[in-house]
Each structure stands twice: as structure tokens, then as C-alpha cells.
Write a protein that binds this DNA or RNA. Structure first.
Length: 774
RNA sequence: UCGGGGAUCGUCUAAUGGCAGGACAGGAGCCUUUGGAGCUCCCUAUCAAGGUUCGAAUCCUUGUCCCCGAACCA
């Protein structure tokens, strides 16, 4: 059952399984069908299906289709296709809409139990009554309607008697809650709209916060994983389940950080804009971060899954380097994509010394290190095509391709030496060359004439190669963070994100390549056959470049353009993104009251606390006095324990050690008599601090008596020296490292000894280890 | 009457009081019929300041910075 990978979700699951809270794992992937799935969803899919797979559980695909005005069957179809393409099999494909009946029954139950009411306020009034982040809300005037009236109104809402927006059903929770989500949240709204699944059966539709926990509970979901922005919703999620159950299993919501990726945008709204406004050619444009776009781009499901594994699961907001995705794509393609030859912008090369006719060269599909079998015949004759990038009239140093008088090898073929330029275009670019072929160099041999072979270049046979349209893609955005600082992301669109190359040629074996087939055009990049391909008109998308010099140069250029510049006036100015103002929303947020302020306020209200603070301050210092005299419970506990030991000892232990063992429990709940005995022993020195911490945990956390706890932690009568020698003998190399100066290992040795003799006096162990290794 | 979260190499992420580890990116070298791949080595981090402890990324305090919440969206 144990799983190698560790993340906080799996930690929770292991704990739940261990404690018996759940005996199986059921998760769900709950997209709203209002757009196509993107790489961010892929992360969620991999997490939800991945953890279920790890623990032999199951995962439902559930459409969260509670808003008929935004959703569409086109999206429903694309979503299931994408999930399956990614390699996951849903245990069931379900729709929120199919639970509308059950949800409604539960809503009536809430009304009957006086926990929900029909509210006639307008949306504007509801907002007003809700209050603000720092002020409580006010009760709706309709909050105290009778159960009968609420039931009648709810039924008439359902029956379609009222127009859109006339009434809503709200939970009756707490208009003064500091969590805005709990201020009588809306459960149902009226929408006379056609639903893609339920048709016209309903005119009231449940809100997310009502629907989602119920869907989870109905399906028997155990772990409901969503993103960070729903943290505030969790309290309401729990409220709904607690007031509609009992549910078994009872689902719990956990939140993880959503994926943010460089050089792209992820919100469905922005993606929809890109599609609708024609910045890209549809949801499956290879530049889109959608799963369908990436598929068309040539990314494999394996690569995307590897990426999702690589980025991990955590709660910290983060932004992932695009390099990680590209690494996964290349790593997968390197092993999976057969190598073939193709030339983007051809230069014709007429070969001097070729005897005539066409030879079939035998070329492997994979290099030796990939270790996959397979070869194909590549035609070679007197006229070949090479890439413009592989010719330079005046080569820079380190240049490893063709130039006047230079010799290169044609991959899988012969070496040639460039003799003369035959033809140039208007811009001066070479279009035709003449070169001498060295017939003796077949099979990797060097030219007889002793010519130095500069490098290996790719080529195709002029007569038999096939024409192809090649689409070269770059990032859709010019900058890593197109949305940063409230910028209009559309202004950061990269105008060069698509370059169509016509006149390219690929080797004859590709003539019948199927749509979706992936190849490496050697030295050029990875490519996939695009669906736009028609018989005789091949279209190839560049999935990704090879890692190498060309890429590095492009990156260097990009960095140059966004780099810091010095203005004429001599002041240094960065790019717009660097100067971007802080989040204006965050700026408008009021400042939160700190615990220190709250304690100070408590003293202002309570003269006894204030007096205690003053008197304690003189002996313990202001900081300790502040913490101890912040509320009556803490102060009471301190006084009791201090009288059993001393002010100083009680203060240190209450401030530094108690919180850890207390967890969420209130300090007033501890057994001061037993803890008092412990503190007295600590004060007397009959219990060492290390043992004291364990004893404290046993008393406060485990409900033991002091005597029982003390017996548990009694120092063993062991030979410390022997124990230390044993650890050192077991780790001779670490001992050597320590002696060589890696003193950080002291902790390791002390830890090992403590593990072997749990109740030894750590201070003594520390001292003894130090001496023994000196 | 504000509340809820978060901060570890450039980036992502481990370490659950006991060796700050891995991956990506970057650098150097080896190898190579792809300037690919592979191999070797290197660089680089606990937000800050105090405290508790034999020992702190981890516990306590204060401060700083970031994210989320006031849709009849999800």
C-alpha cells in the first residue's frame, strides 16, 4: 500500500487509511464543461487519477454542469476525449445535472429544518446586506420567513412561477461570519435556460457550494481535491455535508496549488478570447496550452504525465519553468520518435563525381543509444538538397557545417567537398552549389585525400524527396508572465509564434506518413503530421526544437530584448514588467489585526490582565508577560503551574513547549495538577528537559498521569559509551567525515544514539559523542 | 469584524526536532556519422530578527513579502 512518492495529499490518504477513517480511496475530476481542458487540468487529472491508482481506488469523471448558460456539449465531448487520451479510465462518467432531483430534495429538507430560506432581495441588495471583508453583514428581511412559506415559495420557484433573479434560496448560517462564504450563501437561483443535459426540466439551478459537496457525498468520494482559491469554501463544504447527512463515506476537501506555466495563460476566459478573437486557429491550435492543442502539437500523453509528476503537489503558489515541460517532451520523443531526414529551406547541390543513377542507402530509424531496431532505404543520387542553415560563405570559428572548400559528411551517406556557388537569390542567399562527392567515404570512412571532415549535415535526394508544408511554432507569448501586474495579455502575444515554411522537402519514406505520426527530422527538431494533411500534401508541425545552439541563441536574444537598459539621462530602467505595480486588489485590502494587537486589546478591556502584565513584566520581561497575560485562561494556567515550579520555568515551558503538544486544543483543558507535578520535577532537576518534553506530550496529548508518563520516559540504565561506539562502528565513513570537519554530522550521531536508546539524556549523549569523536 | 493560506538553490520540490536531498535550468569536460542522446564533475537555497533546545528549515515570538475571499461563476 505504501507509495514511494510523498506529497501532502498522499500523506493525508495514508493517515486516513491507517486510522480507518476510510478503507478505500475514491476521487473525482470535476470540470465544468465550459471550455477545453488545458495543461492545468492535466495536473488535476494526474493528481486525482494518480492517487486513486496508487491506492487501488477509483476516480469518477464528473461534469460540474450547474450553470446552463455557460456550458455546451461540444465541451463535454472534448473533455472525455482528452481525459482518455491522457491515459486515464474514469470509473464512471457522471453529470451534476443527474443529481438535481436529490439536491432539490435535500434543499427542501434544509427548509423544513429551518436551515434555509427564500430571499426576495435583488442581487444588488444581497451584495449590500452581505457586508464587507472587515464589517459584518446584516440579516435579510426575509430571513425569518416561516417554514411553510419558504417551502411554498421554493416549490413555486421550482415550478417556474417567478422570473430569473426574482428569488433565491439561501442557507441560514451566519451573516456576521468572518468568512464571507458563510454569510447566508445562495443555494439556488432561477434560470429559465436550456441545459445541455437536463433540457428544460429545471428552472432553478444549484450553486457550486451547494452542489459540489452533495455530488461528492452521493458518489462516495473520499478525498475531494481542488485548488487553493477554494480554501474559504471548505467551511461551507463541511456545513453542507453536516446538515444533509449522515454521509458514509464522508468526503473531505483538500486544496493544492494550481499550475501556473511560463509563457502561457491558463484561464478559460482568456483561452476563449484567444480562440474567439482569432489570435489562434481554434482550441486545438498547437500553440494553445490545451490538451487538444498539445496533442496536435505532437506532445505525447506520456510526456505530459511525466511533467505532472515532475512538478509535484504542494500548497505554495508557484510558476513552473517552461523548460521542465520541454525537457519531458524531448526526453519522451528522443526514445519514441524515429529519425528521418528533411530540409526546411533547400539549397540544391550538384555532385561532381557521382557515377549516375540512384543508390538506396540503408539508414536506421534510431541511433544506437536509443537501442531500437528498424531501418529504411534512403535514395541518393547526383543532385541533393541541403539546408540553408548548413551553408556559410564566411564561416565563424567553431562552425561545423559546409562552407567554401570545406568537407562535410552527409548523414548515412558520403562526404562532400564544396567547390563553388552556382546560383544566388536576389538577397544574396545561396540557392545552388556544386560539390565533389567522395565515393570511398561510404559507411563512415574518411576521404582518401585527407580532407578534414567538419561535421555531419542532413540532406534529401532532390529527385525522390517529397514537398511538405512545415509549421514552426514558438511560444504564444513574448514574455514569461503575460498577465503580470494587470497587463493586457493580448499585448504580449508573440507575433512570430507561427511561421509557415513552404518549399521544404522530406525523404521519400514520409510520403504516406499518417496523421499524428511523430518523427525527428535529424538536426532540425521533432515533428508530427498535422490533421490538415491531405493525400500528396503533407503538413508537419514542429513539436519542439532539438536542444542545442540554435535554442540557446534564441534565448540569449530574448533575454537581450527584455534586459535592463540605460536611458539617455543615465538612469537605469527595467522592462515594464519589472516596474509593474503591486496587485491593486491586495492594496485595497485592510490590514489584519495581529495576535499581539489582540492581546493588547484584551488587556485594555480587562484590568486584571493588565495588572498581571505589569507585574509579570518586571520579572519575566515584557515579551513573556505579553504572551502569558493575553487571555484569562493562559494566565490562570500559568499561575497554577508557576506555583508548582517557578515563574521562569513555567513561562518557558508554557510559551515554547506547550503549544506543540496542545495542537488545536484549548489551553484551559489541560490537567494542571499532573502538569504541575511534571514542572515541579523539572524544577527539581529530577526529570531532564528531553524526557520532560515527552512526558508533557504524554500528559497533555495522551491523558496520562505524571507518574505514568515519568515511568515511560525514565532514563535507561545503559552504557552510553558502548551505544556511541556502536553507532560510530556502524558508520565509519561518517565518523571520518566528522573528524575531517563536517561537524553538521554531530546531529546525525546524536540522533542515531537517541534512536537506539530513546530515553537517554540527549545533552549527555551530545557531550559524549563530541568527546568520543574529538 | 476582517478572515483563510503561503514563503527552502534561478525554477519546481523533499527533509514531519538529528547529514538541507532530488529534478529542471546554467557551467566545465568526455563521448558521438544528429552542435541530438548519453556519461562525469561543478555552481546555487532554509524571508528577517530574536527566543526555546544538546541540536531548529521544522517549535515559540515579532516583523516582512506573496496569494485567496465581499458573482444569482466554478
Amino acid at each position: 500500500m505504501a507509495v514511494e512518492r510523498t506529497d501532502f495529499i498522499r500523506d493525508i490518504i495514508e493517515e486516513d487509511l491507517r486510522t480507518g477513517r476510510h478503507d478505500r480511496v475514491v476521487t473525482r475530476f470535476p470540470p465544468e464543461p465550459n471550455g477545453y481542458l488545458h495543461i492545468g487540468h492535466a495536473k488535476s487529472i494526474c493528481v486525482n487519477f494518480g492517487v486513486a491508482l496508487d491506492y487501488q481506488g477509483k476516480t469518477n469523471l464528473r461534469y460540474d454542469d450547474t450553470n446552463p448558460t455557460k456550458e455546451d456539449v461540444e465541451y463535454v465531448e472534448s473533455i472525455e476525449r482528452d481525459v482518455r487520451w491522457l491515459g486515464f479510465e474514469p470509473a464512471a462518467v457522471l453529470f451534476s445535472a443527474d443529481y438535481f432531483g436529490q439536491m432539490y430534495e435535500l434543499a427542501e429538507r434544509l427548509v423544513r429544518e429551518g436551515k434555509a430560506y427564500v430571499c426576495d432581495l435583488t442581487d444588488e441588495q444581497i451584495r449590500e446586506y452581505r457586508g464587507t471583508l472587515s464589517e459584518p453583514g446584516r440579516p435579510s428581511p426575509f430571513r425569518d420567513r416561516s417554514v411553510e412559506e419558504n417551502l411554498d415559495l421554493l416549490r413555486r420557484m421550482k415550478a417556474g412561477e417567478f422570473p430569473d433573479g426574482a428569488r433565491v434560496l439561501r442557507a441560514k448560517i451566519d451573516m456576521a461570519s468572518s468568512n464571507m462564504k458563510m454569510r447566508d450563501p445562495l443555494l439556488y437561483r432561477i434560470r429559465h435556460a436550456h441545459h445541455h443535459r437536463s433540457g428544460d426540466a429545471w428552472v432553478i439551478y444549484p450553486m457550486y457550494d451547494w452542489a459540489h459537496p452533495l455530488e461528492d457525498a452521493i458518489e462516495g468520494i473520499t478525498h475531494s481535491i481542488c485548488t487553493l482559491e477554494f480554501e474559504n469554501n471548505r467551511e461551507l463544504y463541511d456545513w453542507v455535508l453536516d446538515n444533509t447527512g449522515p454521509w458514509n463515506p464522508r468526503p473531505h476537501q483538500y486544496e493544492m496549488a494550481r499550475l501556473v506555466l511560463d509563457y502561457t495563460v491558463m484561464s478559460k476566459r482568456k483561452l476563449l478570447t484567444l480562440v474567439k478573437d482569432g489570435h489562434v486557429n481554434g482550441w486545438d491550435d498547437p500553440r494553445m496550452p490545451t490538451i487538444s492543442g498539445m496533442r496536435r502539437r505532437g506532445y505525447s500523453a506520456e510526456a505530459i504525465r511525466a511533467f505532472c509528476d515532475m512538478i509535484g503537489i504542494a500548497k505554495a503558489n508557484s510558476s513552473v519553468d517552461i523548460d521542465k515541460l520541454e525537457y519531458c517532451i524531448r526526453e519522451d520523443l528522443n526514445k519514441a520518435a524515429p529519425r528521418v531526414l528533411g530540409v526546411l529551406r533547400p539549397i540544391e547541390v550538384e555532385l561532381t563525381g557521382w557515377p549516375g543513377g540512384t543508390e538506396q542507402l540503408d539508414a536506421p530509424f534510431f541511433p544506437p543509444d536509443v537501442g531500437k531496431p528498424g531501418t529504411r532505404a534512403v535514395p541518393f543520387s547526383g543532385t541533393i538538397l541541403i539546408d540553408r542553415d548548413d551553408w556559410h560563405d564566411d564561416p565563424p570559428k567553431d562552425y561545423k557545417r559546409l562552407a567554401p572548400g570545406r568537407t562535410v559528411r552527409l548523414r548515412y551517406g558520403y562526404c562532400i567537398t564544396a567547390d563553388e556557388v552556382v546560383e544566388r537569390d536576389a538577397a544574396g542567399g545561396v540557392t545552388k552549389l556544386r560539390a565533389t562527392v567522395h565515393l570511398e567515404t561510404k559507411g563512415g570512412k574518411n576521404p582518401d585525400g585527407g580532407q578534414k571532415v567538419s561535421g555531419v549535415i542532413h540532406w534529401v535526394d532532390a529527385a525522390t524527396s517529397v514537398p511538405v508544408e512545415i509549421r514552426l511554432y514558438e511560444q504564444l507569448f513574448k514574455v514569461p508572465k503575460p498577465e503580470e501586474g494587470g497587463q493586457d495579455f493580448l499585448e504580449n502575444i508573440n507575433p512570430n509564434s507561427l511561421e509557415v515554411v513552404r518549399g521544404a522537402r522530406v525523404e521519400a519514406s514520409l510520403a504516406a506518413a499518417e496523421v499524428g505520426a511523430r518523427f525527428q527530422l535529424e538536426r532540425v527538431g521533432y515533428f508530427v503530421v498535422d490533421p490538415d494533411t491531405t493525400p500528396g500534401a503533407l503538413v508537419l508541425n514542429r513539436t519542439i526544437t532539438l536542444r542545442g545552439e540554435a535554442v540557446k541563441a534564441a534565448v540569449a536574444n530574448a533575454q537581450l530584448t527584455v534586459g535592463v537598459s540605460v536611458s539617455a539621462a543615465g538612469t537605469v530602467s527595467g522592462p515594464a514588467t519589472a516596474a509593474a505595480p503591486k496587485n491593486p486588489k491586495a492594496q485595497s485590502r485592510p490590514k489584519t489585526k495581529s495576535p499581539a494587537e489582540q492581546r493588547a486589546e484584551a488587556r485594555a478591556r480587562d484590568s486584571e490582565l493588565a495588572a498581571a502584565f505589569t507585574s509579570l513584566g518586571t520579572t519575566l520581561g515584557e515579551d513573556s508577560a505579553d504572551l502569558l497575560a493575553g487571555d484569562r485562561e493562559t494566565l490562570g494556567v500559568f499561575r497554577t503551574l508557576a506555583s508548582a515550579s517557578s515563574d521562569d520555568l513555567a513561562a518557558k515551558w508554557i510559551i515554547n513547549e506547550l503549544p506543540r503538544v496542545l495542537g488545536d486544543k484549548p489551553i484551559g483543558g489541560i490537567d494542571t495538577a499532573e502538569v504541575g507535578k511534571l514542572f515541579a520535577a523539572l524544577q527539581a532537576g529530577t526529570v531532564a528537559p528531553t524526557a520532560g518534553k515527552k512526558a508533557l506530550a504524554a500528559i497533555v496529548g495522551g491523558g496520562k498521569t505524571f507518574e505514568a508518563a515519568q515511568a515511560d520516559v525514565a532514563a535507561p540504565a545503559i552504557d552510553l559509551g558502548a551505544a556511541i561506539d556502536a553507532v560510530i562502528a556502524a558508520n565509519p565513513e561518517k565518523a571520518a567525515q566528522y573528524k575531517a570537519g563536517k561537524t553538521g554530522l554531530l546531529g546525525f550521531f546524536v540522533g542515531q544514539v537517541m534512536k537506539a536508546s530513546p530515553n537517554a539524556d540527549a545533552a549527555a549523549v551530545n557531550q559524549a559523542v563530541r568527546e568520543r569523536l574529538a
